[in-house]
């Protein structure tokens, strides 16, 4: 073998040797590299879009059937057609989007404030042992407290004002967001933190470039739950607190329907609340979560 011959100068690999090594390496890389193909559109339509459409169609069909069979009197169980008419009325009156926007804008604004408060709070709870011991359990406990319980207190504090609604939303969403970040930070492999330290990402740089991105999957889960809690708390607040000053949101619409004993409006409002919740999940959190997981190679193709 030529290997026992030394190439003269110490420590310099010969040109041919080096080229051979590069080729070997390229071969190894090619053999080892995984290719991930994206699923074709037809597959997505068939496996992801079609099933929920069938499910919804089935629910509407059963509903219509119950309506036709008159299981309950008309005023208690209106048919899909009547609920659709209630929706159409709102559309023609031009109030539909106003109502949705009133609630959605409150929900989103409240949620953003909750992020602004919950994120530093979660960071401090996760990183400062004393704070963690002091308020960690309370934060977890608050998550299981139904936010509707805050409504009476908030009304006494703030009266029937938007502040009262935001207070309820924040009390509902902040603990989820903070807890999500705490558990996200708790799940970071210690190796990432050490690697960050080694390259000099310490202090605020460490938080910005290592801690927060590493905690992102858990944080996102917290945000998702935080949004669900914001939305729920908002509805609780809107149903209980109706006042001309507060405008008409979905919760108020629901309460109005109850006042008129108009089940079509009530069902319509419930469906709208549901649709907004599902839409936010599908349009915002779903794609965000998939993107984060795909980038990290954590998304298992099914």
């Amino acid at each position: 073998m030529a290997s026992t011959e030394t190439t003269g100068k110490t420590g310099t690999a010969g040109g041919e040797d080096s080229a051979g090594l590069a080729g070997l390496e390229a071969g190894l890389d090619a053999l080892d590299t995984r290719t991930t193909a994206r699923t074709p559109l037809r597959q997505v339509l068939l496996h992801k879009v079609l099933p929920p459409i069938i499910a919804v169609a089935l629910v509407v069909a059963v509903w219509q059937l119950l309506y036709v069979l008159e299981v309950k009197p008309d005023y208690q169980l209106p048919g899909p057609g009547q609920v659709w008419d209630a929706l159409a009325d709102q559309w023609y009156e031009g109030t539909l989007f106003d109502v949705i926007w009133t609630s959605l804008s409150r929900g989103v604004l409240g949620f953003l404030i909750a992020i602004a408060i919950g994120t530093p709070l979660g960071l401090i709870v996760a990183k400062v042992p004393f704070v963690r011991a002091a308020i960690g359990p309370i934060l977890t406990g608050l998550q299981s407290l139904p936010s509707v319980a805050w409504v009476p207190a908030a009304i006494i504090w703030f009266g029937l004002t938007p502040s009262m609604i935001y207070a309820v939303v924040l009390l509902g969403a902040v603990p989820s967001i903070a807890n999500g970040l705490v558990s996200g930070i708790g799940q970071i492999p210690p190796l990432y933190l050490r690697a960050g330290q080694v390259i000099g990402a310490t202090g605020l740089h460490g938080v910005r470039h290592v801690l927060l991105p590493a905690a992102l999957p858990g944080y996102l889960a917290g945000l998702k739950q935080g949004w669900a809690f914001s939305w729920r708390s908002l509805m609780a607040a809107e149903i209980i607190a109706t006042s001309p000053d507060l405008g008409v949101g979905l919760g108020q619409l629901l309460e109005t329907g109850r006042g008129y004993q108009d089940m079509a409006i009530v069902l319509n409002a419930i469906l709208l609340i549901l649709v907004v919740g599902v839409a936010i999940e599908l349009l915002v959190f779903g794609p965000l979560e998939r993107r984060v997981l795909r980038n990290r190679g954590l998304l298992v193709a099914r």
Partner: peptide, 16 residues
Amino acid sequence: QRPALMFQEHALFPWL
């Protein structure tokens, strides 16, 4: 200078 350190696991950040 801070010495560079390479681990047994690659320790690369998967979000980058």
